[in-house]
Nucleic acid binder design. Structure first.
Ligand SMILES: [Mn+2]
Ligand SMILES: [Mn+2]
Ligand SMILES: [Zn+2]
Ligand SMILES: [Zn+2]
Lengths: 156, 156
DNA sequence: ATTCTTATTGCAAGTGAGTTGCAACATGGA
DNA sequence: TCCATGTTGCAACTCACTTGCAATAAGAAT
């Protein structure tokens, strides 16, 4: 099981939201040194980050930054709907992955053979969400769709 | 946060697959006393079961049945594609929920206010899966879609 | 600039889901 | 009935994540 291809740009880069730090400040959240580092790393991330990776990257900017602060910052961002939490089919254990929320939702494909993670946007996805909201009168705040299977490269 | 309504029948009851025990036997899996109990409970379940609930129910039939066996049986069923693993938006901590896989996929709606879990089937969901398989040449083995939000009852 | 309130941090300890090694045991085919 | 091999229970473990608390820092008020 390898890793995802380097050349595909994350949806969070193509469809970015407003600056995360500004977004937090405008909501009256205290902008600490630690949060500034973490939020910046999340926003610029080249891939879906787990807590340990995010912590390691953060420590290279402030070696005293504690892992607990990473968890607490991610909770904060989740609570404000600014990051999405992913399972990526729990391909690498029980941990979770995080990405800045984009202007348009997308879903994730995880190859069970090589471990590649792909993103997919579709108007059918948007239509499906609309159908749920209408037919069930359910107000969607967060959606998570993931598919596990075999990618094109692994099928040959 | 309450619990899901009693009157909605689980998709696993409406669209059941072949008997889980028979399915395992036909695949050359040893049918132990413990597996028979667990598989029967999963098949007849009135709601999405977490490990602890499944274990408690199993112990009322065999008080020596160990929790590790529950985990190992669920892994086995997952490996054979006979159960689906759900997060239900991790509304109650990090644990997972399980249900027998049905003939037709469905998605889950989790009310962030009252904790109700609803199921939803849609041809748009099927179309979306088809689009992924075609456009990405990705062979889907398992899909998981969950939405968190506010249910009709909580919206009033 | 200085003070002050209060949210946030780091640390250490704890929780809880899920895993693993191994000896005893049960399954199902010979 | 016997036997080879897969499965179980137990205890100990790992790992992701949480919590209590004293020290600290943000940022609003002065
Ligand atoms: Mn999960
Ligand atoms: Mn993504
Ligand atoms: Zn692959
Ligand atoms: Zn509700």
């Amino acid at each position: 099981m390898g890793t995802q291809p380097k050349h595909t740009m994350l949806a969070a880069q193509r469809n970015p939201r407003r600056n995360l730090a500004e977004e937090l400040i405008s909501r009256g959240v205290r902008m600490t040194h630690q949060r500034r580092i973490l939020v910046d790393l999340i926003q610029r991330a080249d891939r879906h980050l787990d807590v340990l990776t995010l912590w390691r990257r953060a420590r290279s900017r402030d070696s005293t930054l504690n892992k607990v602060t990473v968890y607490r910052t991610l909770s904060l961002l989740k609570k404000h709907g600014l990051v999405d939490e992913l399972d990526l089919m729990h391909l690498e254990g029980e941990k979770h992955f995080y990405e800045a929320r984009t202007t348009r939702d997308h879903l994730h494909l995880a190859c069970l053979k090589c471990g590649a993670i792909m993103e997919f946007e579709s108007s059918l996805f948007e239509k499906l969400k609309g159908q749920i909201e209408r037919e069930r009168r359910f107000s969607i705040q967060v959606v998570r769709m993931e598919a596990g299977g075999i990618c094109a490269a692994c099928r040959g």
